[in-house]
């Protein structure tokens, strides 16, 4: 925990380095869990200073984030928002379209790929911070899935011909196909688990925290992105399901063809011998 970089308009602020752990199976050694989304395995935001990576080394890569929290008592909203934006854009192009802002009922939130800033009156800050962190957690989880899927498109294009035709040369890629199919199913599983927290019923009567949470999800288009991701995963799943079907059909057919090929080879050998004997006999 460190003080925010000057110049800052508010008297009390702090920054923390957080780690987003998209699917850690073990408990972080010594890290304080700030937020956890109930997926399996859970997505977590952990304080980075004390956290170490989980043993085994099989967990997905972690994303590092910087969190600025500030009590903006007496600071005009516009000034606070601009200060947050300036902080979030440090080292990035200006204006950065990836950085979003929200100002609602005296609460200012700025979030981007690597930084999240929250400024609120001192009394309200503890109320809204968990909501903002939950949003960050969900947004990071969804972005992670989007990135993984985006990286897989070239592989899909490479594999898609096998959804139509499969032969013994394609059989060499059977292991790769199985692995990718498993990855797609894994993505589908993570995607499905994000549905309950993303589509949670609205709170009534609304609170400041619930309104901030709803607005953040709306601004980040989380439900729409989730739907869109589902459509993309459908494409992957269709292709790899068909590949799996073709590979299975080919294997079954091949087991039958093996015997036929052996019989054909034997017949060819016998024919060759007969013809050879005929020629050799004529010579004799």
């Amino acid at each position: 925990m460190t003080a925010a970089l000057p110049p800052v308009p508010w008297a009390s602020s702090q920054t923390q380095r957080l780690l987003f752990q998209p699917g850690v199976t073990a408990n972080p050694a010594g890290g304080t869990i700030l937020c956890e989304v109930a997926t399996h395995p859970p997505c977590r935001l952990v304080v980075a200073d004390a956290a170490t990576s989980a043993p085994g080394g099989t967990d997905p890569p972690q994303t590092s984030l910087e969190l600025l929290t500030a009590a903006n008592d007496g600071v005009p909203e516009a000034e606070a928002l601009q200060a947050l934006r300036n902080w979030a854009e440090q080292g990035r192009p200006h204006p950065d379209p990836a950085i979003q802002t929200l100002s609602l009922h005296g609460v200012q939130v700025v979030w981007g790929p690597e930084r999240v800033g929250v400024a609120a009156p001192g009394a309200r800050l503890p109320l809204v911070l968990p909501t903002v962190l939950e949003f960050v957690c969900l947004e990071q989880a969804l972005s992670g899935l989007e990135r993984r899927l985006a990286r897989s498109w070239p592989q899909l294009e490479e594999d898609s011909p096998l959804a139509f035709d499969f032969d013994h040369r394609a059989d060499r890629r059977r292991g790769d196909l199985a692995r990718r199919f498993q990855e797609v199913l894994g993505l589908r599983g993570r995607w499905a688990q994000l549905q309950p927290p993303l589509h949670r019923p609205l709170v009534y009567p609304p609170t400041l925290a619930s309104q901030v949470g709803e607005r953040l999800r709306e601004r980040a288009r989380l439900p729409e992105r989730w739907e869109s991701l589902g459509s993309q995963i459908d494409v992957f799943q269709n292709v790899y399901e068909q590949c799996a079907q073709r590979a299975h059909d080919w294997r079954l057919a091949w087991k039958g063809h093996t015997l036929e090929i052996l019989i054909i080879l034997l017949l060819l050998g016998q024919t060759l011998l007969l013809v050879f004997e005929l020629f050799a006999g004529r010579e004799a």
């Binding site: 060759l272 050879f276 020629f279 004529r282 010579e283």
Partner: peptide
């Protein structure tokens, strides 16, 4: 001859 050619090849 054809037969010698055939047997020679094989």
């Amino acid at each position: 001859t054809l037969s010698d050619g055939f047997t020679g090849c094989l």
